[in-house]
Write a protein that binds this DNA or RNA. Structure first.
Length: 96
DNA sequence: CCCCTGACTAGAA
DNA sequence: TTTCTAGCCAGGG
């Protein structure tokens, strides 16, 4: 039965919940979002969701595991993060 | 079904 | 520290 079809929706809603829970100043990696959503190892799925769901989520609060900003949106993302007080280091999110 | 692509990653060079 | 490589998982042609 169409379990795999339903899986995509579950993942999407779970990821959405995590993303919508992010507050100003918060920053998570794709992998962390996936993990917290209950889908470890689905970092790519998180990226796809963010890239295909036209701005309904706070996309600027998500960066890759290396702290790199979103390809093609570095400038806007850097500005938004700065507005929230997130420190950047050489174009990368500083993580301790 | 095959093939390519990507807002990913961890690990090797 | 930066670049490459090999896995990875879905989507879409």
């Amino acid at each position: 039965h169409g379990r795999s079809d339903q899986m995509g929706d579950e993942l999407e809603s779970a990821v959405a919940e995590v993303l919508l829970g992010l507050e100003p100043g918060d920053v998570m990696t794709y992998g962390e979002v996936a993990l917290e959503a209950g889908f470890p190892g689905r970092a790519r799925a998180v990226g796809r969701i963010l890239s295909t769901s036209g701005g309904i989520y706070p996309w600027w609060r998500v960066v890759n595991a290396a702290g790199r900003l979103v390809p093609g949106h570095e400038e806007e993302q850097a500005r938004r993060l700065a507005d929230e007080g997130v420190e950047l280091r050489n174009g990368r999110v500083r993580r301790r």
